[in-house]
Design a protein around this nucleic acid. Structure first.
Lengths: 229, 229
DNA sequence: GACAACCAAATTGTTGACATTATTGTCGGC
DNA sequence: GCCGACAATAATGTCAACAATTTGGTTGTC
């Protein structure tokens, strides 16, 4: 772990660094929704002082990632499926408008890079390297937002994604979903290369909605017809 | 001040309450971008302990509303005009999708309420009551988002609005802008009543873009051709 | 055996004091 | 009169100790 080493190298990690560390743990499903985040544990694992840990928890609470109850401490906040629906609707709006702007105003180099990433993801699907797909997928979406020069939207989407990341993790091990996503990407890229903003936006919205639909079905299978829990 | 009295009634305001108080001050232009937020001053004005004030500042920093520099404290973060552009683009996406959803799925009562608010705003424009217009305008936008049952988007838009609220304040004293906004609203309501989602979304986007354009022109006039500062 | 009251450990909330740094004002030299 | 160094002040960063509360287990009773 490069990051963990970096934390220990200095005399102590800052509040922001501790917050990022907790975020990473949540994204990696090491902290799951409902779990209590005991201050002492985090102090032991990060090397930060109690003061800074509390600072970090306050920031995360403002982000809506954890919830703090009086005298009971911080919990990882879990999103209900209805909230997930709302999150994906927001993503559809934000990433949709980005796709449209990208198609109409992005540089030729950025568009070329988008094609290359999509090609690489196609190779992943055929070669069966799901973890690599997740990485490429993140880069692909990021490029689409950065290409429009809108860091505000990029930041908003990053926040929206974190609460459901533990679900996305599962997603990337379903080859059928990967294949679907690759097709979605292909359609978006096509519209982008044609410079057709509205088409790119519509395609991106369908892509996000498909992702939500998949997650929704997955949840229903686990909770109503599943075998565990 | 009802809120200020509420703060003093109890033995001490919580961190969240202090954060809200600071937010209110910023929205009312009592704290302006670049201004230092000295802890002691906030303690005196809110009656909170230093610990809780720091808590509040951490939360606001996570929201991006203030910036904290080491050993220099918290500043109100000002948005550059480029960032304002990005904020409005995000709002156009989010409120646009809400307008579309509202047109297609909102209840008849909510749609009726939307018409009534638009009517009241028309009366404001003719009667010349700008402050009331601002209040009604906020309610109108809020209703549009709540009617779709998406509190996530409502929360995001609230955050996006805060940094530019001191500019919006000025806006509501220009009767020409009010008249324009009323016309925009009328067009959106028309599409909503027709149940035409795409038309409502397009109209809402134009409305937001118009607002941005107005703000942009205002800023250019003040900074490049203005008389003061 | 079930249940309620109670006690002890663990955890968080709060306060105050102290260390570190930035800012301001002052003095001396040029 | 201007400029740099230096001291005094103010503000923030940090920490450790203490208070308040929850939690889990224990004991005693019915």
């Amino acid at each position: 772990m490069n990051k963990a080493a970096d934390l220990l190298a200095r005399k102590g990690p800052s509040g922001v660094e501790i917050a990022d560390w907790i975020r990473t743990q949540i994204r990696a499903s090491r902290f799951v929704p409902g779990q209590r985040l005991v201050e002492v544990d985090i102090i032991r694992q990060t090397g930060g002082s109690r003061f800074k840990v509390r600072e970090a928890l306050q920031r995360l609470a403002a982000d809506g990632l954890v919830e703090i109850e009086e005298f009971r401490g911080a919990f990882v906040r879990g999103a209900s499926m209805d909230e997930v629906r709302q999150l994906y609707r927001a993503r559809a709006a934000l990433e949709g408008i980005c796709a449209g702007d990208f198609a109409e105003r992005a540089s030729a180099e950025d568009k070329q890079k988008l094609v290359e990433l999509a090609d690489a993801m196609d190779d992943c699907v055929n070669g069966g390297a799901p973890e690599k797909f997740g990485q490429l997928n993140a880069e692909w979406h990021k490029l689409l937002m950065q290409g429009t020069g809108n860091v505000v939207i990029e930041d908003l989407v990053k926040r929206l994604n974190t609460p459901v990341h533990h679900l996305l993790f599962e997603t990337f091990y379903r080859s059928d979903r990967l294949r679907e996503a690759a097709v979605d990407h292909r359609l978006i890229v096509q519209a982008v290369l044609a410079g057709d903003g509205p088409a790119a936006e519509a395609a991106m919205r369908r892509h996000i909605e498909n992702g939500h639909q998949f997650l929704s079905d997955l949840d229903r299978a686990v909770h109503h017809g599943g075998s565990h829990n």
